[in-house]
């Protein structure tokens, strides 16, 4: 009888641990892949691009709003904390930081696209909202050229 009781206790403890772990994952969101991103998009999640305006203008995921990650704490004050939020950046670093900021603000379901838009396999809107500028200078160097496009983040 003792052995049976012990088994039941162990089984119950194991089940409880699994349930707690599962509940933790779903409640807090976390790092997600492209498939989960699309599910959340269909669910009506707020999609937030935390890169720079220049990166956003060059190409972004349809339906995304631009909020560079440095300003997300301020902008998100007006958001519904119960609506799921999915953040993404280029490769996942800035979005992970932004997700932590949102969680600390009390947002219940915050997800970040782990591999960033670099690994995104869905549609991209390119050029929309691009800043109007003078045509880029024609390359006049007699040497080969290396362009580096960067930001200060």
């Amino acid at each position: 009888m003792v052995r049976v009781t012990t088994r039941w206790a162990l089984a119950a403890a194991a089940i409880a641990m699994v349930l707690v772990a599962a509940a933790g994952c779903s409640a807090d969101g976390g790092a997600i892949d492209n498939a989960r991103f699309k599910d959340l998009q269909a669910e009506g999640a707020r999609i937030v691009d935390v890169r720079t305006a220049g990166e956003f203008a060059a190409g972004h995921i349809p339906g995304a709003e631009l909020v560079p990650y440095q300003g997300i704490a301020q902008v998100a004050q007006g958001w519904d904390p119960t609506q799921p939020v999915v953040v993404y950046c280029a490769v996942g670093d800035r979005s992970a930081e932004a997700a932590n900021v949102l969680r600390s603000m009390g947002f219940e379901r915050v997800y970040d696209l782990a591999a960033g838009i670099v690994a995104w396999d869905g549609d991209i809107i390119a050029g929309e909202g691009a800043v109007a500028t003078e045509p880029p200078a024609v390359q006049t160097s007699e040497l080969p050229v290396l362009y580096e496009f960067f930001t200060d983040w």
Binding site: T52, V118, I124, A130, P136, Y147, F149, F150
Partner: peptide
């Protein structure tokens, strides 16, 4: 932004 678009650069 214009240069990035010219060279199809989407990321930094």
């Amino acid at each position: 932004a214009a240069l990035m678009a010219q060279y199809n650069a989407q990321y930094v």
